[in-house]
Design a protein around this nucleic acid. Structure first.
Lengths: 233, 233
DNA sequence: GCAAAAGTGTTTCTCGTACACCCATGG
DNA sequence: CCATGGGTGTACGAGAAACACTTTTGC
């Protein structure tokens, strides 16, 4: 079976930059999920999970599908990043890639689960291997976007479990933004938005004082957002 | 001549949301350039300038080309916005659109010049006619992006002539952001960045005190930008 | 000389930032 | 009992915001 068109058409792929974060690790930096290519071109090289867009699915749907197929993950935060269209980005011919960003918490979504044939692995953002295609540029763009976004929209919570402590939240922001925050000022700022709900639970298990657990109040956030509310950090 | 592929491929278009601004008008609001469609579908309806991507051109190049073909404009600021991929956005079949934003000054780039067959016309942002395809959504997305961007990156200058007065600049920001600024505070803030060069020229012709003309110092901005400089308004 | 926009400083207040100690828990 | 991170308040300074009058120009 084949398909014929009057004019030539580029092929269209989606690629996902999946950011993972593990709040349990002490010095956890951001991770990115890569897949080892089993086929030419770039056989044996690491690449972003992705694949071709089907005719009957939207771009978002394609990204969600690839995410599930290659990593087993579902119900994760996902957002379109940018479309890459350099002429020589794929040696097989003209292939455009619509890149997506996904944010996942490594405790909720432990990998192996849905992984099929291909080897998927998490890499520290600052210890990435050489990447196939133009994926290095895509990752760079994604990191810039995440850094920008996290400061004025509360997307960071997507990288944490549903319940988290203040210091887990602070560690996350310090990791993503590569800076430190004063503990008291950070708490003051976050509390001032009134977007955290005290769940009553406590994080125990470590040889120190137990920490309160909070949930992000996304309902309230959505309500505030409509009235021109601005989250900022 | 025709082209055959093993798998079906969506068609790929670019569409441009061209923002125009006229600093000479008193109550100029933002304008958008639209084209009246001469062909089905949506014959007679207004639409964003755009067209199909060629095999041998990048997405940026396609946007630049369409811009020139349909409006005669060259050397304008252009930036990729978002890629729209809803299944039913084009009644002719599966067509994806990579949307671009362009910013032009209406004095520098007076329309008619390069316009070919199709009728192109500027519309006030808040008096837009019904639009073809999903172009209403594209415009909405573009406006949000412009509003967001203008606050932390000095893109606004693209909408002004090379030399402009302080109040032209202030009017522009007030128009785009739909708010007012205090004259003295605005001037203080802008001056604090040291990004304006006094050209020595004066804007005369109106029955009031002449105003100094400035240029934006893009060299200095690029230098500052590298060292983590932040423009903010 | 009049109408209209250009240009100019000071005060107030909000918010960001810096900073140090006691508390609770598990081992 | 000790090591470790949890939790808390205040003082200072920078920058945002409010605010009114004089100057210049074209007609």
């Amino acid at each position: 079976m084949s398909y014929t068109y009057k004019y030539p058409r580029p092929a269209l792929a989606v690629d996902c930059v999946i950011f993972g974060y593990d709040h349990r690790l002490e010095e956890s930096d951001l991770q990115i999920l890569l897949i080892e290519r089993k086929l030419v071109p770039f056989k044996g090289k690491w690449a972003l999970p992705g694949g071709f867009v089907q005719m009957n699915e939207t771009l978002d749907a394609a990204a969600v599908r690839e995410l599930k197929e290659e990593t087993g993950m579902e119900k994760v935060y996902i957002e379109q990043l940018y479309t890459f269209g350099a002429l020589d980005r794929d040696p097989r011919g003209r292939v455009l890639s619509v890149a997506y960003i996904a944010l996942v918490n490594l405790e909720k979504h432990n990998l192996k689960a849905g992984t099929d044939a291909e080897a998927a692995e998490w890499f520290s953002l600052n210890k990435l291997p050489a990447l196939a295609f133009d994926h290095k540029i895509i990752v760079k763009t994604a990191v810039e976007r995440l850094r920008g976004k996290v400061r004025y929209q509360p997307v960071g919570f997507e990288l944490l479990p549903d319940e988290f402590t203040f210091s887990e939240l602070q560690n996350l922001y310090e990791t993503v933004l590569e800076r430190t925050f004063d503990k008291r000022n950070f708490r003051k700022k976050i509390e001032s938005y009134g977007l955290l709900i005290d769940t009553g639970g406590m994080r125990r298990g470590k040889p120190n004082r137990a920490a309160k657990l909070y949930r992000f109040d996304s309902k309230r956030y959505k309500a505030l957002e409509k009235h021109g509310f601005m989250f900022e950090l």
